[in-house]
Each structure stands twice: as C-alpha cells, then as structure tokens.
C-alpha cells in the first residue's frame, strides 16, 4: 500500500514538474480559450443584441464554458501523453517499477487533473473583464468542480491512451472526440428546447454537459440540471473510465 501511494505521488509530481518547466506550453494553452472568449465570444455577443454593442450576458454565459474547454483540452492532452511515454520508452520504466499498475493510472489521472485545473485557473483570472465576480466560497466551489471535470476527462483520456498504439491517431481524437464533446456540452450556447431533438439528445448523453452546467451554476448562477445530478454524472463517468483504464493498464505487456 505504501508503495502504491508513493507511486501515485511520484507520478503526480512528475506531471507537475513537467508542467512548470514548460512555460511556453502554459502560455499557448491559455491563448486558445482566451481567443474563444474574447474574439469569438465578443463577436457573437453583438449578433445576439439588436443594434450591436455586445451583450455582457452572453459573455457571462460562455465564460464557465470556456474554462471547461481549457480544462477539457488540457486533461485529454495530458492523459494522451501516455502514448508519447510509450514511444519514448519512459512508460517501460514505470511499468517495470515495483508499484501496482492501478497506482500508475491514478497518479497520472491526478497529475493530469492538477495541471488542467491550473490551466483553467488562468482563465479564471480574467473574470473581471467579463463582469463576473464571485465570493471566496464560490471560488473554492469552482476549483472543486473544475477538479472533478478534470479528473473525469483525464480518466477518459487515459482510457483512450491505453487503447491507442501510436500518436498518429491524435488528430482523430481531437476531431472526433474533443471537439464534438466541447460543442455539444452547452459551453457556447444554451441547450434548451429551441435545439433540434437529436442535438439535445447528444447534449444529454455527453458527460461534459453536466460538468459545464455545474461550473456555470457555481460561477454565474445559471443552471439547467440539478447540481447533484451534475456531480453524480461527472464523478461517476470519471470513476468508470479510470477503472476500465486501470484494467487495461494492468494488462499492458
């Protein structure tokens, strides 16, 4: 057990160490969500208000969605870096270490989650510009929710990574998993009855929708589902993904 805990801690620490070393990555990872928020968000908000001038309401609406996006992208990419570890050999060092394989999966999930939360926190700094203000309690809740989304998505990413042999499928993951998940999560537009039925169905089966909803409820007080349903689905999805991912990890030769 002690070995397992040490394994989890070491793999977590490795992710953090790598993250802090890579300053350019931090900046470039923050750039994309900020573009979405300020360029696309500002642009679209004028379209929603007759006569132009922009709607602060729309920016407030997408703000938690953009934070979720940042968390989602960082989570999946950091989990999928297991494939790079495999290609550059480091995975072997970990697989032959005297620690249970499941502790490797958990360590990676926690490491990736922490990095994703930090990356999301950068977007949180821009709150005043989009006229969002929150109490200390709200901020803490937001961090908690961000961590749950991150953990869930990193676990999902780990499962993907265990099923992929090379990094060549990377583009496929982006186009067929990450982007659809983001678009169908209600991050950029409301998912009420005005949406076509097929789209609403997809939104409802997308676990990220509940994460975005939870974060939006926490930060700007708008919500579609109950917070308990949100948390149950986000955590449940993460737990299932991590269990299956750890199982495949266990069987890696």
């Amino acid at each position: 057990m002690k070995a397992a805990l040490m394994g989890i801690y070491t793999l977590w620490l490795r992710d953090i160490t790598r993250f802090l070393k890579d300053k350019p990555r931090i900046v470039s990872s923050a750039a994309q969500p900020l573009l979405w928020l300020f360029v696309l968000g500002m642009g679209l908000s004028t379209a929603f208000v007759r006569g132009g001038g922009g709607s602060p309401q729309y920016l407030r609406f997408i703000y938690p969605g953009i934070i979720s996006m940042s968390v989602l992208f960082t989570s999946i990419f950091s989990a999928v870096s297991i494939i790079w570890d495999r290609e550059f050999g480091f995975l072997k060092e970990v697989l032959v270490a005297p620690i249970p394989r499941w502790s490797v999966a958990i360590g990676r999930a926690l490491g990736g989650s922490t990095v994703a939360v930090l990356q999301g926190a950068i977007i949180l700094l821009f709150a005043p510009i989009v006229h969002v203000s929150f109490s200390a309690l709200q901020l803490m809740s937001a961090f908690l929710v961000m961590f749950m989304i991150a953990f869930s998505m990193t676990s999902f990413g780990i499962l993907i990574a265990t099923r992929m042999q090379t990094h060549e499928g990377f583009q496929v993951i982006t186009n067929f998993i990450i982007l659809p998940m983001f678009f169908l999560s209600g991050a950029m537009f409301p998912t009420g009855r005005s949406l076509p039925a097929w789209m609403r169905a997809l939104v409802h089966i997308n676990p990220l929708s509940y994460g975005v909803d939870a974060l939006r409820g926490t930060l700007v007080g708008m919500r579609g589902f109950s917070i308990w349903l949100d948390l149950l689905i986000v955590i449940g999805f993460g737990a299932i993904m991590l269990t299956i991912g750890a199982y495949y990890f266990e069987r890696t030769e």
Partner: peptide, 18 residues
Amino acid sequence: SLDERLTALENLKFHAMI
C-alpha cells in the same frame, strides 16, 4: 526509457521514489 524533459537528477529522484 528516460524522461527527456526532466534533468538527470529528476529522473534519478523519481526512480528512487517509486
């Protein structure tokens, strides 16, 4: 099978830990 982004010392430290 080294982590090339880490330093030699960090590679050894993490190994010692696990």
